[in-house]
Amino acid sequence: MNALDPPMRALQRVLGVPRIAWMFVGPNLAILGLFTFLPIVINFYFAFTGGVQLYPSERPFTGTENLSTLFDCGSYLDPATCRKDLFWRSIYNTGEFALLQVALMVALALVTALVLNRKILGRGFFRGVFFYPVLLSPVVVALIWKWVLQREGVLNAVLASAGSSPVGWLSDANWAFFWCVFVSIWAHMGFYTLILLAGLQAIPADLYEAAEMDGTSPWRRFSRITLPLLMPNLIVVLVLGLIRAVQIFDEVFVLTGGGPGSATTFIVQFIYQTGFAESIHQYGLAAAASLVLALSLLVLTLVQLRITRKNLDSPAGRGDG
C-alpha cells in the first residue's frame, strides 16, 4: 500500500486536507448508494409496475395493481378467501411465529442470564455453550436438527425406547411449526442472553449490598432493583428479537421448506418464491410484498428508536451487518 502514497499525496494537494475525507468515505458511500439507497427507489418502481421482465423500461406501469392483488380478500381474517392466500397465510404465520418465538426466547434468555450471572463453576464455559449456536450458519442449524428430527432420527429412537411410536416431527403441521420456533430459539437465544447478561453485570453490586443492609427481601430485590434496571436491555432485546423474527427465512427454509403445505411459510419466503423461485418471476408482486414487510419493520424500528433514543450510540441492528 506504500505504492499508493504518491497518488494519494497528489490527490491531497488537489483536494486539501478536510476535503480529502470524501476520498476516505467515498468507497463506502458508493457501495451503500448502489446496493442500498438505489434499490430502495427501484423497489417502489417494481411495486407499481407489472409484467415478468426484470429490466425497468420493459415493465408496464400498473399503478396499485400489485398491492390490490395482494390485498384482494373476502375476509382478511380468513386467508382462504384471499386471491393471494399464500401471502396472507405467510403473514399470519409470521405474526404467530414472531410473538411466540420472541416471548419464549426472551423469557429463556432472561433465566439463562440470571443463572449465568451467579457465581457458578465454569461460568465462561457455560456462557460459551449457550452462545455457540449463534455462530452456526442457518443451513447448518437446520441440518443438525433435521438429522435429529427425521423419522429414523435420534429423537424417535429415544421415544421408541420409551415404548412410543415414532412421530413425524416435520411432516405434521403443528409439530413442524413448533420445531421452527424451537430451532430458531436454539439458534439465537445466546445472543440475547449475552445482552441481558451485560445488563445484569452493569448493575452495581453495592445496590444489592445496600438493599441487603436495609433488610430488603430477595424477591423485592429482584422486582425493585434487578428488573427495573434491566428494563432498557429487556426492551431492546424484545424489539430486536421481533425485527429479526419477522424476517425469519434461512433456517426454516432448509428445515421444512415452508411445509408441510404452507404451515411454515413466512413472509420472506413468500417474497423469495414469488420473485425468484417460481417459474414465472413476479417481481412486481414480490416488491409489493417487500413494501409491506418494510412497513412493519419501519414501525418496529421507530418503536426501537423511541425507546433507545437516550443511547443512540448503540446501533443494535440487523443480523448481517
Binding site: 486536507v17 478536510p18 476535503r19 480529502i20 475525507a21 470524501w22 476516505f24 468515505v25 463506502n28 458511500l29 451503500l32 446496493f35 442500498t36 439507497f37 438505489l38 434499490p39 430502495i40 427507489v41 427501484i42 423497489n43 418502481y45 417494481f46 426484470l54 429490466y55 425497468p56 425485527i243 424476517q247 427465512f249 420472506v268 417474497i271 423469495y272 420473485g275 425468484f276 417481481y283 414480490a286 416488491a287 417487500s290 413494501l291 414487510l293 418494510a294 419493520l297 419501519l298 424500528t301 446501533p315 441492528g317 440487523r318 443480523g319 448481517d320
Partner: peptide
C-alpha cells in the same frame, strides 16, 4: 476530519442499519 456534511454522511451510513437486505431483494437483483 471536520468536513462539511460529516454528520449527514454518518447518519446516512447508520440509517442503513434499518434497511435489512430482505426488503430490497428484487431491486438489488436488478
Amino acid at each position: 476530519y471536520r468536513f462539511g456534511g460529516r454528520n449527514a454522511v454518518f447518519l446516512l451510513i447508520i440509517s442503513t442499519l434499518m434497511i435489512p437486505p430482505t426488503i430490497i431483494l428484487v431491486p438489488n437483483f436488478l
